[in-house]
Design a protein around this nucleic acid. Structure first.
Length: 227
DNA sequence: GCGACAG
DNA sequence: ATCTTGTCGC
């Protein structure tokens, strides 16, 4: 199957079948010890106009100095269905990716990696399409179970699915709701968690994702405020 | 049948 | 995610 020529106009059932097939192609390995560019992606929706803004921002690693930011605005053509988020967001992110002048070495995604019912969350799906390492960083749990977590910055507990550890639940700041970290593609449990830890600033959301989210929101405003 | 349910 | 007002806290 040729991922680059993939059709994105699928029925939910076809999407599920595709996920089952693609999940077997996800691979795991430690993220590179050293690399130059980290990317973070996010999407904002202009509900009224049925359009979305896909944003990718890149940073130098490990200092996190901004490098470039790109975005695309495109129509929403797949409904939100828990477990099928990637079919709604990945197509636009692939378009945005083409606009980057400097290809990133790793991408942080706003959603799950393999912590997914069929082990193919947004981060895994996107990483597979781009053939680059990705890490999933979600604000809520999709599936899996975990024990109690002490709400102190840096603390984490394993996220378990069917007896297997698929990620971790990480407290990014004292007293806040935890993040759900899982490997996307070409990454692993430990290096994914450490990458996110190194991206933590003074807010709950890791700084790169937070900036991508800010830009997406700002662009959505323009879309709503203008003609 | 009854919840749970990324963004 | 989006919509939406005031409000509690550092």
């Amino acid at each position: 199957m040729d991922i680059s020529a993939m059709s994105w106009d699928l029925s939910p059932q076809e999407a599920v079948n595709l996920q089952r097939e693609l999940a077997g192609r996800v691979s795991f390995r430690p993220l590179p010890k050293r690399f130059d560019i980290l990317a973070a992606s996010d999407i904002a929706y202009a509900k009224e106009k049925n359009r979305l803004v896909a944003v990718i921002v890149t940073f130098r690693w490990p200092d996190l100095e901004p490098v470039e930011a790109v975005h695309v605005i495109s129509p929403v053509r797949f409904p939100y269905i828990p477990g099928l988020l990637s079919f709604r967001e990945v197509p636009a992110l692939l378009e945005a990716y083409e606009l980057l002048r400097l290809p990133p070495d790793v991408m942080l995604c706003d959603g799950q990696g393999i912590a997914h019912p069929r082990r193919l969350g947004l981060a895994s799906h996107l990483g597979l399409c781009l053939a680059i390492p990705t890490v999933g960083c979600a604000k809520k749990r999709l599936c899996g179970i975990h024990g109690p977590l002490e709400l102190r910055r840096g603390f984490d507990v394993p996220l378990v699915m069917n007896g297997e550890i698929v990620g971790c639940v990480l407290c990014s700041r004292d007293g806040v709701k935890p993040l759900f970290i899982s490997p996307g593609h070409l990454s692993d449990l430990e290096t994914s968690r450490e990458l996110v830890r190194r991206c933590l600033g003074r807010f709950r959301i890791p700084e790169p994702l937070r900036q991508a989210h800010h830009l997406a929101t700002r662009l959505r405003e323009q879309l709503t405020t203008r003609a």
